[in-house]
């Protein structure tokens, strides 16, 4: 409970910044609408206004500022508008039994979640196996590690369309496959790095103890390196699943995907409905938060069973 207050303070501060940004962001649109409604605004020409500072416009037209908080298609919606839009596209539709209609964010979130979990599983498997190889073999370390690092220097947005085209060329029609590959591409790296660190965490004495038992390499791995790496694993899994979600959304952006949160963001952009973008963004953030929370709970339970209750 002690951790709630600081989080709440930051949240309130963020919302305050957001709300105060709504007025300048929307002032031009508000004045356009006011002008059309016959209200006299200063300056009168829309062209002149578009070249005038937003704060000057607010200063000259103080009565029109509040209009920016109730626009139909605001450039920057208020938190309340985003909340209402989110509710309209999730809870309300679910209550009407249309949770999986094409307009529902639950449907799009579900599409994104599937690819995320698929990519996360793939990325985690690759990350763990890679780490095991790197820790067990010097050759693997020298050959794999540089490529793992280089792979992360290539911007995923550049790579994503290629992966989609390539899987299409290979005759894979299923949309989820390239998305999962992109998501695994982002997610394997933190897992790999964390696991290499974790598998190398045992101190020299811990290893020597097993040497005095004449333990095999397999036993050393199984009874010492692996359990010692578990705390590291969970930390990287949390980073990894967030990366997997980002990867999936990036994978949904290009080449005209029609479902998934990424597609909603893109469509919102193309159709000039910032509200749709914002609610999809928040849905993604909520999804990420939920996934990380699940992993945190899993981490607590596991580490407690491993004697970590200090």
């Amino acid at each position: 409970m002690r951790s709630v207050l600081p989080v709440l303070t930051v949240l309130i501060a963020l919302i305050a910044v957001w709300i105060s940004a709504v007025a300048p962001m929307n002032i031009r649109q508000s004045l356009d609408i006011a002008e059309r409604a016959g209200v006299s605004v200063v300056p009168e020409s829309a062209r002149v206004r578009s070249e005038t500072s937003r704060f000057y416009l607010m200063y000259r037209n103080p009565d029109e500022i509040l209009r920016g908080y109730a626009l139909d298609r605001p450039r920057l919606p208020t938190p309340k508008q985003v909340g209402q839009e989110l509710w309209k596209t999730t809870g309300e539709m679910a209550l009407k039994g249309r949770a999986f209609s094409k307009r529902s964010l639950i449907f799009h979130g579900w599409i994104t979640l599937q690819s995320t979990l698929f990519g996360f599983a793939l990325g985690t498997a690759i990350g763990i196996l890679g780490a095991v190889a790197i820790v067990c073999s010097r050759t693997a370390e020298m050959s794999l590690m540089p490529w793992a690092i280089i792979s992360q220097t290539i911007p995923i947005v550049a790579l994503a369309p290629m992966i989609i085209v390539l899987t299409g060329q290979l005759g894979i029609e299923e949309r989820a496959v390239p998305k999962a590959i992109i998501s695994a591409y982002l997610c394997f790296f933190p897992v790999l790095v964390g696991m290499v660190k974790g598998l190398r965490a045992p101190a020299r004495e811990d290893l020597e103890l097993l040497k005095t038992y004449n333990a095999s390499g397999f036993a050393t791995f199984w009874k010492l390196r692996l359990p010692a790496s578990v705390p590291f694993l969970f930390t990287s899994l949390k980073v990894g699943i967030a990366a997997a979600l980002v990867g999936t959304i990036v994978g949904e952006l290009p080449t005209g995907a029609i479902s998934g949160l990424g597609a909603r963001i893109l469509i919102g952009d193309q159709f000039g409905t910032p509200l749709a973008i914002w609610s999809a963004l928040f849905a993604a953030a909520i999804l990420a938060g939920a996934l990380v929370t699940i992993l945190t709970v899993l981490q607590k339970v596991t580490l407690k069973r491993m004697g970590g209750a200090r």
């Binding site: 811990d206 010692a228 004697g307």
Partner: peptide, 14 residues
């Protein structure tokens, strides 16, 4: 032989 190190070196997860 059995070897006892300077630090107890018990595995914390066991």
């Amino acid at each position: 032989y059995g070897y006892v190190f300077q630090a107890a070196g018990l595995y914390p997860w066991r």
